[in-house]
Nucleic acid binder design. Sequence first.
DNA 1: AATGAATGAGCCTTCATTCAT
DNA 2: AATGAATGAAGGCTCATTCAT
Lengths: 219, 219, 219, 219
Amino acid sequence: MAKPRQTVETKRRIPRQSRAAETVTAILEGAAQILEAGGLAAFTTNAVAERAGVSIGTLYQYFTNKDAVLLALARQEMEIALGDVGRALGGSDDPSLEGRVRAMVRVIINAFRGRQRARKAVVQAILAQGIGIELMAPVAAFIAAAGAEVGSGPQAILPALSREQLFVMSRAMLGAIRAAVLEEKPFLRSRAFEDEIVRLAVSYLDAIKADPDRNRTTA
Amino acid sequence: MAKPRQTVETKRRIPRQSRAAETVTAILEGAAQILEAGGLAAFTTNAVAERAGVSIGTLYQYFTNKDAVLLALARQEMEIALGDVGRALGGSDDPSLEGRVRAMVRVIINAFRGRQRARKAVVQAILAQGIGIELMAPVAAFIAAAGAEVGSGPQAILPALSREQLFVMSRAMLGAIRAAVLEEKPFLRSRAFEDEIVRLAVSYLDAIKADPDRNRTTA
Amino acid sequence: MAKPRQTVETKRRIPRQSRAAETVTAILEGAAQILEAGGLAAFTTNAVAERAGVSIGTLYQYFTNKDAVLLALARQEMEIALGDVGRALGGSDDPSLEGRVRAMVRVIINAFRGRQRARKAVVQAILAQGIGIELMAPVAAFIAAAGAEVGSGPQAILPALSREQLFVMSRAMLGAIRAAVLEEKPFLRSRAFEDEIVRLAVSYLDAIKADPDRNRTTA
Amino acid sequence: MAKPRQTVETKRRIPRQSRAAETVTAILEGAAQILEAGGLAAFTTNAVAERAGVSIGTLYQYFTNKDAVLLALARQEMEIALGDVGRALGGSDDPSLEGRVRAMVRVIINAFRGRQRARKAVVQAILAQGIGIELMAPVAAFIAAAGAEVGSGPQAILPALSREQLFVMSRAMLGAIRAAVLEEKPFLRSRAFEDEIVRLAVSYLDAIKADPDRNRTTA
DNA sequence: AATGAATGAGCCTTCATTCAT
DNA sequence: AATGAATGAAGGCTCATTCAT
């Protein structure tokens, strides 16, 4: 469909031996820790290498440059997050719309609680380059799939969402949760907050169901 | 009553001669341009000074350091945006709830359209320091006031919102719009996008009206 | 004898009006205060001007550059110190050798007590340029005169001292006192310390009297 | 007993490869040369690195900052000087009081002769910080030990000196010699000058011996 | 005479990256 | 494969000095 966008290269050497794989893991873990502890300002290649317990030379044997480390970290975190969301949606025991939404909200809040700074820094850095779009692709695809399922699955609760609707709903939820994290709101983990996020999403979806013809532009 | 919170100091010298005021303006304008053109990475004090047409020494005569320039710029942009929102709410010819919300959405989108990168960089930088909360204060106050008016004004369309509701609504809207800006979505200025944002807000407020007792925690 | 060394110029404008004289006084007083408070590191022309209550432009109307301020300050302090020593020697009620020496020691200790840092900084700065010798000239002359008087005056206690002897005696006394000041010795103002300085000088002079022929090289 | 006083840190990296040790040596040598040639004013990190034949980055890999270079240089020079004095006292073929004193005077004069400006600058810089006292400690200890030996050794020429006496004698000698260096006196290396320094010290010690009870305050 | 805004050379320091071992 | 010493471009910032008002 879409022309296969040339993937940005991050690795310099593909690790074939197990020791090498461990080294890469150590570097990414070190990178995440540095980011978490000191934000982007503390994220220097020397610091990452030291924290990872490898020499700076070794780091450069596996990553072409500083940004490659960041990018690899972003990809890894993205995959973990996607897995979490997928598992949450699949394993929800409440198959109603509200039940699924609530499960998703919980996953997102938890995703933001651990290593907030690392995540934030990664996202910032990624967006600051032009690479955001590429990385977002799998996320968007995933949400689109989930949305489609919600709309057209066996339960057929909703019609398929337009790309604008999908975008608005997902980003609105993420935005509210992220703001609560960044502003360190005390109610972040409260039931009341969770309820309001759910209410936001559900009422929006209900409104679309009630008036589906407005703004129909299928993705 | 409470001691007026000590504002974070950005200015080093209070301009007494008219020339000096122009210089400060030029520096902030230069800073915005640099940010717009090259993002945070290009934002060096030397670059700002050069773009502003002043010497680096002059820049440092008015700002204690690099961050002070960023902070001053953030404050300025914040005030402009607040003024815009206020004017939009006051001057809306459609006094209905949807009319008011739509006016607000337009202002916010427009606020982000001009100099997107500059705004983005400013926001990023501000949040990276701890100052975000302080700067957010007037914004939050403003939205709270607007929300209260919506709930309790002559039209009394809605009951007063709880702090979680206020937070979720404002951050959800801002989050969706900001994401569209940061991800450079083509539909940013489309009618469809605006409609969906409005739908999000209105349906949420309607849901609250229909079931106000849930999660009542007045701010 | 010696070719009259061209005096280093410090003043740019000779103050003829009283207001100008006050300005110069204020600047030198400001310079001394800055030096005293923060040492040479804090001694910036802008700081001096501000402390003096004049604009930086005014400072440069009276002094060609930063060093000129330092030099003028050094000259002023030198003259004050010389005056003190002279008065002490003249006004001593104990005309014996020990009495005169003791009077001198007291003056020197006092001279070092007030504004130690300012004095130290001035001396350092002066020596760092090549100007030390020039400034030392009047001091040396004064001590030589005092020494000569001690040796050949009406009391004729001692033979005239050679230039090495004069040098060793004066610098040894100054060195011991200065070290006590710089190292902040608690016994600086004690009677014991004063006694030992006096003993040092008197025993040295006595030794010269006892064996004058050794090292005879009249200045 | 007492916790070992935390030494002020100057080194950033402990050299593990032999190349690194050479680099540190080169930097300190370069620093001394720069200081010697141009005084403290010429002592910039870039100049030192260039003179040492290393890059500025390398300099900062071994020293935390500019002052650390100065401090390390001071320590090194101090140790060399102490070693010289010790060797001179031990190896003197004339065991008389005058013989020992003369040996010491020669060492000190020689210590001050080579690289006068470097030494001067180092001392100035060290004193300008608060570190002077710490650095002086080993010197003071050494002189105290030497003094004690002179007073109480097998030869028992003198009674033990009080702290004021020790201080006055050592600082007087150092002061006279240092002044001759700083003022660039032509007689610095003359026999006459050396004789007078010796006479100063010996006559002072003799006077103490003759009247030991005055000002007895054993250190 | 005085003011103070403006200037800019130059200093200290960091950190991504290379390469000899 | 790994190490870590070395590099140097580049950036933040200071402060002596000038000059238009």
